[in-house]
């Protein structure tokens, strides 16, 4: 939006509003009152490129045709995406927890490397083999990490578990026999609030013996 800064005369853009509240007051228009929101429609979507495109993603070995906007993340496609034949992608194992690449709840693999799906644009996931927690097992045969997580009770509420499982699998594919310190480093991008860490460490050690 090339003219976005010009809007200050008639209204207050999100950007100038944010500049204003940093100092506690908004001088631009209606002091002493404060405005929240109140952007023009075009401003609200500034830079968000509402125009969409149809792309193909390869997820768990299966092709998906999905329509995405430039801002659409891989995580949004996995969880909320609808393919071009109208079916929900519905791969809800990866979770949105922190929404900023801090907690690892949305971890998936892209070409075998762990990535935060909330930080990867769907368009950037084209031409990559995406593996989600749903794609780790071989049919009914669970991945050794999955087996070990169950055995060691390496989960409580389970909301962070898909992220930890994928990160653990990715760690073991890089380093089949990690030490405890290496496990801690390998899983440092994942957060659990129930406090399952000790049993997660045990599970990764057990799984490493089966890799």
């Amino acid at each position: 939006m090339p003219d976005k800064e010009k809007k200050q005369g008639t209204n207050i853009s999100r950007r100038s509003f944010l500049k204003g509240v940093g100092t506690g007051t908004v001088a631009a228009t209606v002091a002493p009152s404060v405005l929240i929101g109140g952007e023009k429609a075009a401003d609200a979507q500034e830079g968000d490129a509402v125009a969409s495109a149809t792309i193909q993603l390869n997820i768990n070995g299966k092709p998906y045709q999905v329509e995405v906007e430039a801002r659409t993340t891989l995580l949004t496609v996995l969880r909320d995406g609808i393919d071009t034949s109208g079916n929900n992608v519905d791969l809800t194992g990866a979770k949105l927890i922190c929404d900023r690449g801090e907690c690892g709840g949305c971890t998936v693999m892209a070409d075998g490397n762990p990535v935060y799906a909330c930080m990867m644009l769907a368009m950037d996931a084209q031409d990559k083999q995406i593996t989600t927690v749903e794609g780790l097992a071989d049919g009914d045969d669970l991945h050794p990490v999955q087996e070990a997580f169950i055995q060691h009770d390496a989960l409580m509420c389970g909301f962070c578990t898909p992220g930890f499982v994928v990160s653990s699998a990715a760690l073991l594919s890089e380093n089949a026999k990690p030490t405890l310190e290496e496990i801690k480093v390998g899983l440092s991008g994942n957060t659990c609030r129930c406090g399952t860490y000790p049993f997660i460490f045990d599970a990764v050690k057990t799984a490493s013996k089966k890799m």
Partner: peptide
């Protein structure tokens, strides 16, 4: 997008 379009006037 929609919640950013709601205009709220507040007297602090």
């Amino acid at each position: 997008d929609a919640i950013r379009l709601i205009r709220v006037d507040l007297e602090e």
